[in-house]
Amino acid sequence: MTNIVRSQFQAHPFHLVSPSPWPVNVSFSLLFLTLSAVLTMHGFSNAGPYLAFAFISLILSMSYWWRDVISEATYLGHHTLAVQKGINMGVALFITSEALFFLAIFWAFFHSALSPTIELGAQWPPMGIEAINPFELPLLNTVILLSSGVTVTYAHHSLIKGDRSATLYGLLATVVLALIFTGFQGVEYAVSSFTISDGIFGSCFYLGTGFHGIHVIIGTAFLAVGLWRVVAYHSTDNHHLGLESGILYWHFVDVVWLFLYISIYYWGS
């Protein structure tokens, strides 16, 4: 009887995750999303519906996966201090890998910008390229994104102090500013005089700003989920790991944009 009782209690602080179908579902959804996107770009017939189906499958699989993680953290109590420490380390390593990814983009940009070849007209920006004025829409977007960093920090400190209403207002303002930034980035792409196929300048510009835009969209979803969890009373002043990870990710997005603005928009123009 004693052995049976002891077997019901966990002898370590770590979370042994139960078997879940969602990682496999997400993997196959990403595979089909990539294949259908490539087929759509090459003009294959009926590729569009497959692309939409793959995207919906990805969103649903991720949503159910997040639901299970939230349940494990909030209701089942599996996210002990040891688990939280491991997750924090995982988020830090993930952000480090993302920083190295952007480092490669900056490397490609400066490789050509610091010593433009004769094929580029021995000048930067290359001949025929009219760079975007850094003091117009890019500067406004910089102010918007840095303001979102202020509002999300305000929300974080308000949550730590137990001020729920200030936390909600701060996170809501952050999400709204992020959506405005994304919309203005789309306007900038629409009115730009060059495309991604216009040599190394266009490739580096759209690769850097485009992937940053994708990170902004991911970070917006991250913070929107955090906002919903605060509304649902999931996050407390001493246990808000998911929101804290989203805030750390958002600050990374802010810093990357500063480097993009200074190097590609201002110096590169």
Results as ranks from 00 to 15, higher is better:
113 A>M: 13
98 E>M: 15
84 Q>N: 15
136 E>I: 02
209 T>N: 06
149 G>A: 13
207 L>I: 14
89 M>A: 15
2 T>D: 11
225 V>I: 11
223 L>S: 04
228 W>K: 07
198 D>H: 14
196 I>V: 14
236 T>A: 11
194 F>R: 12
136 E>N: 03
143 V>H: 00
207 L>Y: 08
229 R>D: 13
135 F>G: 09
242 G>K: 02
51 L>E: 01
210 G>P: 15
265 Y>F: 15
169 Y>V: 08
185 Q>H: 14
66 W>F: 10
207 L>R: 02
64 Y>M: 00
59 I>G: 02
86 G>P: 01
161 K>N: 14
56 I>L: 15
246 G>I: 04
19 P>W: 00
141 N>S: 12
58 L>H: 11
268 G>A: 02
21 P>K: 13
135 F>R: 07
55 F>H: 05
47 A>V: 01
189 Y>N: 08
248 L>T: 13
90 G>V: 07
212 H>W: 10
11 A>T: 11
66 W>P: 00
93 L>P: 06
148 S>V: 08
13 P>R: 06
107 W>Q: 15
171 L>Y: 05
36 S>D: 04
182 T>H: 00
149 G>S: 11
245 S>A: 15
12 H>P: 01
26 V>S: 05
213 G>K: 10
29 S>H: 01
260 L>M: 15
253 V>G: 04
172 L>Y: 02
259 F>K: 01
74 T>P: 00
130 E>F: 11
94 F>M: 08
13 P>Y: 04
203 S>N: 03
137 L>A: 08
159 L>M: 13
132 I>A: 04
7 S>W: 09
263 S>N: 09
137 L>W: 06
238 N>I: 11
52 A>R: 07
111 H>F: 14
219 G>K: 05
239 H>V: 01
121 G>I: 13
151 T>F: 09
57 S>R: 10
101 F>T: 09
81 L>Q: 06
19 P>N: 01
221 A>W: 07
246 G>M: 04
74 T>K: 04
23 P>S: 03
159 L>W: 09
14 F>Q: 00
257 W>R: 01
204 C>Y: 05
24 V>W: 06
226 G>Y: 07
182 T>G: 00
72 E>C: 14
246 G>S: 14
161 K>R: 15
192 S>R: 15
176 V>M: 12
245 S>F: 10
106 F>D: 04
54 A>H: 07
154 Y>P: 00
81 L>G: 01
77 G>P: 10
177 L>Q: 03
173 A>D: 10
66 W>D: 10
201 F>E: 02
228 W>R: 10
9 F>W: 12
232 A>F: 03
114 L>R: 08
200 I>R: 04
195 T>S: 12
255 V>E: 05
163 D>M: 02
133 N>M: 03
158 S>V: 03
42 H>Q: 12
2 T>A: 11
89 M>V: 14
60 L>M: 08
28 F>R: 09
75 Y>S: 14
62 M>P: 02
134 P>A: 08
215 H>C: 11
213 G>P: 10
211 F>W: 13
253 V>W: 03
226 G>K: 06
55 F>T: 12
265 Y>D: 08
251 H>C: 07
42 H>N: 14
161 K>V: 06
